[in-house]
Structure formats: C-alpha cells, structure tokens
C-alpha cells in the first residue's frame, strides 16, 4: 500500500517537474524567440511583398505574402546607391574595428601586465570614458571633425568610432588578459622572449576568444552606428546603410516600405553571419571562461 503510494507520488512529482519545466523554460523561451524574431519576419515579408498587397489589408493578410516579388530588392540594388552604401559601411566598420583592436590590445596589455604606476587609475579612467553618452560627445567631436577637414569623408567616422569602441574593448581585454596565468609570461621571459614577443607569441594566441568578442562588438556597433554617421556625412554616396535607408529611401513623406525593409534586411545580414560564426567565443569570453 505504502509502496504504491510512493510510486504514485514519484510519478506525480515527475509529471509535475515536467510540467514545471515546460512552464518555466519552454514557454518563456518561445515567447522570447517570437518577440525577438517577429521584426525580422516582418522585415522579410515586407521586403518581398508587391505594393498591391502591402497597402491592402482587407484582401490580403498582413502576416503573409501571396505573390512574392524581387522588385523591391531589384530597385534597391539597381536604382539606388545601395551597393555603395554597403561598401561604405563595410569599409568604415572594418577600419574602425582594426584600429580599435590594435589600440585596445596595447592599452589592455600595458594596464594589466606592465603594472606601471597608476595603471589602475588609467584603467578606471578608460572605462569611465565609455560611460559618456555619444550624443553628448558628438558636439565636441563635430567641431574637431570640421577643424580637421574630415567632414563628409569616411575618415570622419573611422576616427570617431574608436572613441567609444576602444574603452569597451580595452576593458574587455583587460579582463581576458587577467585570466591568462602570469606564470606563462614569466616562463617566456626566462625562455628569452622580449615583451613584444611575449605579447605576440603567448598572450595574443591565448586571448583569441577575447579578441574575437572585442572584434564582434566593435564591428556591430560601427555597422549600426547612427548619430555620428548622420551628423558627419552629408553627401549621398558617402552615407552608411543605417543613415542612407532612412534619408534616401524616405522621400518627403513617401515611405518606400519595400525597399526600406529590403535595405534593412540586407544590411543586417553581414552582422548576423559574423555573429553566427563566433557566437561561442563571444559568450565564453563575456562570461570569463578560463581555459587551460
């Protein structure tokens, strides 16, 4: 009797825990996924919708597309300077990322490993610099950009993006360098390596996950950046994707929804691809996973 009781209880418990799992894990997870992916879905179907379907909610469901078309994408690629904008964005993002990474590696290494006088304060100061909002920083930056004659050139952005990229990357890399045993460097020092050799042959190879996450971070931020790109670039052929689709594809109060969405979609693809390659590294380095 009592045996049967406990068996029942066990079954009840397992049923409960299964149910609980569904309620606490899967339902919220599914909600998140739907909420997060819905804009992408909307973007995609709008990009391939013919105009007739887009504006006629009565006859066509807004959540579905009946006769998909490539007209919007075609128009975007061949009737606007979209390829040019994409190239600008790519160029600026890559250059800003490279500059930021090189600067941050050197800064982080110096702060974490050389331990010069006041290195802790320098580290703190760099981090505080990251907390200054770009919308405040862009006023002094604008006057510098004008003085240097960089206005409306890609350099205006390539040189200003590092102002917010370097602090974060440095901070991230300091944490990453910290997780690499100092003994390795001491050992290399005895083995006869110079500081730069240690950095190049020991520390950097071990910090690859950290470098990748700093790289992803810089690349995405530069890719999506809006305020500086809007303020420092005026001519159409120098614009970046986020600014261009908003300023060039909205004519007066006419929103070319199809091309707009196609532009956003194509614009977010490179970042998504970039992420999907390195997402494991990104997570592991942000959570400070130390490896042997």
């Amino acid at each position: 009797m009592s045996k049967a009781d406990t068996a029942d209880e066990g079954a009840a418990l397992s049923w409960q825990s299964k149910q609980r799992r569904v309620v606490t894990v899967y339902v919220p997870l599914i909600c998140f996924v739907i909420i997060l992916l819905f804009p992408f879905y909307w973007m995609t179907i709008t990009a391939i919708k013919p105009n007739a379907e887009m504006f006629d909610y009565k006859t066509y469901s807004p959540f579905w597309v009946v006769s998909p078309t490539l007209a919007n994408i075609n128009k975007l690629l061949f009737e606007t300077s979209y390829p040019r904008w994409l190239f600008n964005t790519m160029l600026i993002a890559v250059c800003a990322t490279v500059i930021s990474l090189v600067a941050s590696v050197l800064a982080a290494y110096a702060i974490q490993r050389l331990r010069f006088k006041g290195s802790a304060y320098v580290g703190l100061a760099i981090y505080i610099a990251y907390l200054v909002p770009p919308s405040i920083l862009f006023i002094p930056l604008a006057s510098m950009v004008f003085k240097l004659g960089l206005f409306d050139s890609p350099f205006a952005l390539i040189l200003t993006y590092p102002t917010f990229l370097i602090p974060f990357c440095t901070w991230l890399l300091i944490g990453y360098f910290k997780s690499i045993p100092y003994e390795l460097e001491e050992c290399a020092l005895i083995d006869g390596a110079s500081r730069l050799q240690i950095l190049r042959r020991i520390t950097l190879p071990l910090a690859v996950p950290g470098l990748i996450s700093a790289g992803i971070f810089s690349f995405t931020l530069s890719w999506n950046e809006f305020i500086y790109a809007l303020a420092f670039i005026s001519s159409s052929e120098n614009k970046t994707v986020p600014v261009a689709i908003l300023t060039e594809l909205v004519q007066g109060d006419v929103y070319q929804w199809g091309s707009l969405m196609a532009g956003s979609l194509l614009g977010s693809l490179p970042v998504a691809i970039f992420y999907s390659f390195f997402v494991d590294y990104y997570v592991s380095s942000l959570t400070g996973a130390v490896k042997e």
Partner: peptide, 20 residues
Amino acid sequence: VPPKDRDIAMVFQNYALYPH
C-alpha cells in the same frame, strides 16, 4: 641582469606550459 641572460631554467608549480 634580466632573466633571459642569467642562463637559468625554471620549473613552475603549475608547470606554465604554453597551452597553444
């Protein structure tokens, strides 16, 4: 004299092998 010119070799407690 810097470590590399002292002509010594050291074995560390955690071995300090280069993992990569």
